[in-house]
């Protein structure tokens, strides 16, 4: 790093510029990662937080994927699945979208009917009995709903017995109730799906069982939304590789004469490669660190108005990916270093 550190001091402007570009790219990737995770959570947290291993859906038509909106199972499917070897517990799941009205306030909600054991942890009140509901924490702010209130769901009035930790389904806050009450709200005799613990060893006719994580794709729009955002993140990382690679390629070409002199006085290729990669690593860590730091601050502020999740996965991981991507780009430029001919240090060719 002897030459690398001195180059950084000498060419401050150039390195500040590339550092700023790396910081900006990292900022964008981290912001996008936070939004992707936030939007994903808003879409599937109700499913993600279910204490089950897999979810059984009605078998979809040929060429179609399972979906919560397209699935309807007879109520006795729960018993059939519970009897399959390998299954330790089966719980009915009813999922329906409706409007919650609380006086002048209203909000679109997803009502989930299931067993009390599958509810998220209560934050206030008691587990809902027949004719009662528990609401996600967001509804206390969005629709001013509190324990003890009476609200209207699908034209029927229910008492709020509890609030639960915030979950949502398809970007709507959730309302939990019993399966019987859910059928009343959804005006149906069926259920949507069955949550399973354990691993079924046999198939049940007309039923498709998928892992919980695979069931995220059964939430409408989730896969398309995440796919689009992930593609943008991937493109940003690819652009970063190109930008950093281009910078270090030009930088290496500009100082080819200096490198030839170092080779001529006995500097090994390994010394120069280590120096160059060390320089790239330093720039990437500083640039990515500044970018991720700014994104974390702005993300925390933005989390009040947009779904933004700040975690190790959305902050540290994108930063590491950017650093590695930058090093890949810089490594591509080091091919030129390994081909520097020390002979060019002699004579008037310089």
């Amino acid at each position: 790093m002897f030459i690398a550190i001195r180059d950084l001091r000498f060419a401050r402007g150039r390195f500040a510029l590339i550092g700023a570009v790396i910081a900006l790219m990292t900022f964008l990737v981290v912001m996008l990662s936070g939004l992707t995770a936030g939007l994903g959570s808003a879409s599937i947290s109700a499913v993600r937080d279910l204490p089950v291993d897999s979810i059984a859906f009605a078998k979809p038509a040929a060429g179609q994927a399972v979906s919560f909106t397209g699935s309807a199972l007879p109520a006795d499917t729960v018993g059939q699945l519970a009897a399959v070897p390998g299954v330790t517990a089966a719980h009915p799941l009813g999922v329906a979208t409706t409007q919650l009205e609380n006086g002048d306030a209203a909000a679109a909600v997803t009502v989930i009917g299931t067993d009390p054991g599958l509810l998220p942890p209560l934050t206030a009140g008691r587990t809902p009995a027949a004719g009662q509901i528990a609401v996600a924490g967001a509804l206390t702010k969005d629709a001013h709903v509190h324990v003890g209130d009476t609200v209207t769901l699908g034209g029927t009035r229910f008492t709020v017995s509890a609030t639960v930790e915030d979950t949502s389904f398809s970007h709507m806050p959730t309302v939990y109730t019993s399966v019987d009450t859910w059928r009343q709200i959804a005006h149906t005799d069926t259920i949507t799906a069955v949550g399973l613990t354990g691993t079924p060893t046999h198939d049940v006719p007309g039923v498709t069982v998928v892992s919980k994580s695979a069931a995220f794709g059964a939430v409408g729009g989730y896969s398309a939304e995440q796919g689009s955002l992930n593609l943008i993140r991937l493109l940003l990382v690819a652009v970063s590789v190109l930008v950093v690679g281009s910078f270090f390629t030009v930088w290496t070409m500009q100082r080819a004469g200096d490198l030839a002199v170092v080779r001529a006085i006995g500097g090994s290729r390994r010394y120069l490669l280590r120096d160059a990669l060390g320089q790239a690593l330093l720039i990437m860590v500083l640039g990515a660190g500044v970018g991720a730091g700014l994104a974390a601050v702005l993300g925390l502020l933005a989390a009040n108005v947009v779904p933004f999740t700040l975690s190790a996965a959305t902050l540290a991981l994108p930063m590491v990916v950017m650093i590695v991507a930058g090093l890949v780009g810089a490594a591509a430029s080091t091919r030129r270093i390994s081909t520097i001919d020390p002979l060019t240090a002699l004579g008037a060719s310089r």
Binding site: R255, V261, L346
Partner: peptide
């Protein structure tokens, strides 16, 4: 070396 073969930085 000939003149100017010093590292600029």
């Amino acid at each position: 070396f000939q003149q100017a073969n010093l590292l600029a930085s």
